[in-house]
């Protein structure tokens, strides 16, 4: 059966750690890192493999730092 698989790439240097993407993700893929970027923000990171590539996080990210991939796999 065809399965949809997704992945996101976060530009962590541009992330401001606002957590809006975290709230928007239906699969709890995103959390904030313990580490900070060079601006001092706890940037967003992935914490599981459940991304479907729905683009919700990228659509609400105020800084537009998320790129989303989606593909069908057999």
């Amino acid at each position: 059966m065809a399965k949809v698989k997704g992945d996101i790439v976060i530009n962590i240097e541009r992330c401001k750690g606002c957590e809006v993407c975290m709230t928007a993700c239906p699969f709890h893929v995103i959390a904030m890192a313990k580490e900070v970027n060079s601006k001092g923000y706890h940037y967003a990171v992935k914490v599981n493999n459940d991304c479907t590539g729905c683009t919700n996080c990228a659509v609400v990210c105020p800084d537009g730092v998320i790129t989303v991939y989606r593909a069908k796999t057999e």
Binding site: K5, D7, N49, G53, V59, G64, V65, Y69
Partner: peptide, 22 residues
């Protein structure tokens, strides 16, 4: 990077990226 699915990170699979008009 944790939980990266490198096999699907191809230009043809991009469904969302920051617009070049920003």
């Amino acid at each position: 990077e944790a939980f990266a699915k490198l096999d699907i990170r191809k230009p043809e699979n991009i469904v969302y990226k920051r617009t070049d008009l920003l």
